[in-house]
């Protein structure tokens, strides 16, 4: 469990007219949960992500991972290993010239013995369905494949929590499907706790819980159905609802009997044509 208690963080603490990037956030991320985080540009999502694994330390309040505070310097590496991070641009995250060396990089840094590393590399490449590419050069892979390798590199450190900051923003539709399917499977089948930051409302639909940020604060949270019913509020916060949800709401306005929280194409097809 990751806990935030009244957490604030400011990049320019001396300048009082600049709002803190993260303001008074309290939040508990449960084990096995899939939490989606959405919010306007500059609302504090990436800052929040970096607070979760101690890359940034709160100015106020406490962030704790399994009850250990991220500000506890002696536990710094333990927390970095427990909370793995994946970023937007896969090219910036791959270092080695061979896939399996890249995946081995994290566990090597943790000082894991080499036989164990071999096992972990195999395991984590299988988890993202990329084992057959172990001897390939990462720069020749597609965007989605690169991003799965980056995820494998994190998995090889055996984290409990996976934090992904707009992991699909630069991917083509196929890459996006691959990465979403991979992470959803890790969550549903292997119980991995996932924090997924995105600007794509369609992606947030698969989460157990959606949290909406606004100017550093937590504005709304709830299940995808609870959150995406609130179209007007979301639009005020510079966001939107999935286009299928919106279609359902418009048809309801026209007098047809459709709920305001239809989330996916399949659901809509089944409602219209049971």
């Amino acid at each position: 469990m990751i806990q935030l208690q009244d957490v604030s963080y400011s990049y320019q603490p001396e300048e009082e007219q600049v709002l803190p990037a993260v303001s008074d956030i309290s939040l508990t991320i449960e084990e096995g949960e899939f939490l989606a985080v959405i919010g306007h540009n500059g609302s504090g999502k990436s800052t929040l992500a970096k607070l979760l694994n101690g890359l940034l330390l709160p100015d106020k309040g406490v962030v704790s991972v399994d009850l250990i505070s991220t500000s506890d310097q002696e536990k710094y590496w333990q927390i970095r290993q427990q909370v793995g991070m994946v970023f937007q641009n896969p090219d910036n995250q791959l270092i080695a010239t061979i896939v399996e060396e890249d995946v081995a990089f994290g566990p090597e840094n943790l000082g894991i013995p080499s036989e164990e590393i071999v096992t972990r590399v195999e395991e984590s490449l299988s988890q993202v369905a990329m084992l057959e590419y172990r001897h390939h050069a990462p720069h020749l892979l597609s965007g989605g494949q690169k991003q799965r390798i980056a995820i494998a590199g994190i998995l090889a450190m055996h984290p409990k929590y996976l934090v992904l900051d707009e992991p699909t923003a630069m991917l083509d539709p196929q890459g996006r499907r691959e990465v979403m399917a991979t992470v959803t499977r890790l969550n549903r089948e292997e119980g991995m706790t996932v924090v997924w930051i995105t600007h794509h409302m369609e992606e947030a639909v698969r989460a157990h819980r959606v949290m909406v940020m606004d100017h550093g604060r937590l504005a709304i949270q709830g299940t995808p159905r609870e959150v995406f019913k609130q179209t007007e509020l979301l639009q005020l916060l510079h966001l939107d609802v999935p286009v299928i949800t919106r279609l359902g709401q418009l048809l309801a306005q026209d007098g047809f009997n459709l709920p305001p929280d239809v989330l996916t194409v399949e659901e809509m097809v089944n409602l219209l044509c049971p």
Binding site: P173, V243, V265, E266, V269
Partner: peptide
């Protein structure tokens, strides 16, 4: 080839696949 169609087009294609006589070239809300 690794691409897709927009979600509304997906919906219309899926409804057509169930035998409904709706146009497939719908691109906006």
């Amino acid at each position: 080839i690794g691409l897709d169609v927009p979600p509304l087009t997906q919906l219309l294609l899926a409804l057509r696949a169930r035998g409904l006589d709706l146009p497939a070239d719908i691109l906006n809300l």
